Structures are given as structure tokens and as C-alpha cells.
Simulated scan of single mutants.
Amino acid sequence: MKPKVYITSKLPEDVADYLRQHCEIEIWDGDRAITGEELAERLTDVEGLMTSGNKVSERLLQSAPKLRAVSNVSVGYNHNDLSAMKARGIIGTHTPYVLDDTVADLALTLMLSAARRVAELDQLVRSGNWQRGLGEQLFGTDVHHAKLGIIGMGRIGEAIAKRAKFGFDMDVAYYNRSRKPATEEKLGVVYQPLDELLAESDFIVLMTPLTPETKHLIGRPQFERMKSSAIFINVSRGDTVDEKALIEALRSKTIRAAGLDVYEQEPVSPDNELLSLDNVVLLPHIGSATHATRNRMAMVAARNLVDALYGREPQYVIPELK
């Protein structure tokens, strides 16, 4: 008898076909995201869950007595209660590597957009306020040959560094919890303590995972160390930044600009003060959102789930659950 699996969002047809070969599947087909309560109702006799961002809490697990595996269609898994999963012996998997280049592309997109004020100037043209001979008040900032500081030199950090170093001739420094000599030699990047990196960089990209140690890693003291001309980019997790401190830094011109793909609350509330600022580029958490990458992520997640349910070692088990 095939194991029963619940999937919280639509799948590419080839991925759904693969899962049907091995499992009895049910897919959420609503025109909005499934709520936690709705998900709990559907997990009473399910052995496998394939999800993208849905909170897997101890309470949810109590509604799923037969659950044996949770497959995340994402690299991050901070929405999973790992302690509760471990206590139940539930296998958890994720999809690293697949999206590295796509997220790195987006980080550079935000850098360029914030530096050259793309969103702001797009609105200027659309509003009909473009007049010949615009003055210096609308000039942007050069990216080429500037200094980039990367906080978190994992796989995506390395991909960003490579694009910056060899595509834009940038001077690249990084801060990481441990030095990476091989990366330094391969890419020509240098390690700096965090305070030095913040003080000297023209662009700062935050690429660290969310852990108890990195929650609000960047707050008021860190923004005050940055250059007044600095541009801050966050493509990691929203909670790695104290958003109130960021808003104040942008409003007071403590830093020049920012580009964000992640936020402390997602989706962003309509009354979030970030929406009123013209020196920040805002994206709706789309780091991996291309057709090709999302399809590859879904297939990796499906294979992880099938392997887990059939007693094989999945390729990408969450490290804390190994």
C-alpha cells in the first residue's frame, strides 16, 4: 500500500507524476495559502508532508499521529520545530544547492536597483514627472569597483562574491563564524571582523541563516557603524535584522539605501513604515522564484520525501535531525 502524502501547494506536473508513482497524494488546490488549522485537519492519516514555508509546530504534529517525514521545498527550515520532530523521530529534509545561483542573481539585482534607484525612477517616469535635465538629486551610486561586504559566506555568499568580484571588479570582504581559506584563495576575497566590514563597505549583503545567535544580528549599533553612503541588502531571513532600527537608519539617512527580499512579518503589513520610504527597494520574498529553479526544488523535495518514506537515506536531511 502506497504511503499517503499531503502537499501544501501546486506542483509541476512531472513532479506530481513522480510522487503518484510512489505515493497516494493530495494537493491543496485553494487560490490562497493553506492555514495552519486547515493543514492540521488534513494530516490525521498522512505519513508524509511536502511543504514550502508552512509552520510545522508541535501542535501541528499532534494532529498528525502517522507522520513520518516532512519535506521542505526550501533551503531554510526555521519554520520547523526541530525539537518536536526529533522527539517524534520524524525525518526532515530541505533543498540546498539548487537555488544558490538564482538567489545570488537576486542579491545583485537588489544591489543594482538600490544603487541606481531603479524603483524610484521607474515611478518618476510612470507618473509623468520626468523632465529634461534632471539634477543631481536623482543621481545614483556606482557598483563597479566599490567595496562589498558579505555577512555569511556559505554557498550563496560565494556565488554573490564571484559575481561581484569578476563581474563588477568589486573589492570583496566577508565575515563568517569561521574563516574559509580555500574561498579566499579561489575568489580573492578577504576576511574581516564584523565591525570592520560594516565600517568600510560600500555595499553590505546579509546572507546568514536564521539561528538564535543571528536573530537581530544587524540592529541600531550595526547601522550606526556603516558609512552614510552604504547600501544594505538582506536576502537571508527577515528576523536577522531589527526592522525598526533599519527603518530609522533609512529615514534619518544613517545609511543611503536598502534592498530587501525578506521581512520580520511576511507578507508585509500595509502600515509597515518601509512602504513609505523611497530609499528602499522591496521585493516579496522571491529569492528562488524562477520557473526553472522552483521546478528543480520541487523535484528534489519529492525525491527526498519518497526516499524517507521508503526507508532510504534522503539526499538532503536537515543537519540537526541527522
Rank of each mutant, 00 (worst) to 15 (best):
192 Q>L: 15
192 Q>V: 00
194 L>D: 03
194 L>A: 02
195 D>I: 12
196 E>T: 13
197 L>T: 10
199 A>K: 02
200 E>A: 09
201 S>P: 09
202 D>E: 02
203 F>E: 04
204 I>F: 04
204 I>Y: 06
205 V>D: 14
207 M>W: 06
209 P>E: 10
211 T>H: 12
212 P>S: 10
212 P>R: 05
213 E>T: 07
213 E>N: 01
213 E>D: 11
213 E>A: 05
214 T>L: 07
216 H>C: 02
217 L>E: 11
217 L>Q: 08
217 L>M: 14
218 I>H: 04
222 Q>C: 07
222 Q>T: 03
224 E>W: 00
224 E>I: 00
226 M>I: 07
227 K>G: 15
227 K>N: 15
227 K>Q: 15
228 S>P: 13
229 S>F: 05
229 S>D: 10
234 N>E: 13
234 N>F: 15
237 R>C: 04
238 G>Q: 03
238 G>K: 04
238 G>R: 01
239 D>F: 10
241 V>N: 02
241 V>A: 04
245 A>S: 15
246 L>N: 04
247 I>W: 13
247 I>Q: 09
248 E>Y: 10
248 E>I: 03
249 A>D: 02
252 S>G: 09
253 K>M: 12
253 K>T: 02
259 G>D: 02
259 G>P: 05
261 D>E: 08
261 D>A: 00
262 V>C: 07
263 Y>T: 00
264 E>F: 00
265 Q>A: 11
266 E>S: 06
269 S>Q: 10
269 S>E: 15
270 P>A: 10
271 D>T: 14
271 D>Y: 11
271 D>I: 09
272 N>I: 00
272 N>Q: 09
275 L>R: 12
275 L>D: 07
276 S>T: 09
281 V>G: 02
281 V>Q: 12
282 L>T: 12
282 L>H: 05
284 P>S: 13
285 H>C: 11
287 G>D: 09
288 S>W: 01
291 H>V: 07
293 T>D: 09
294 R>K: 10
294 R>D: 00
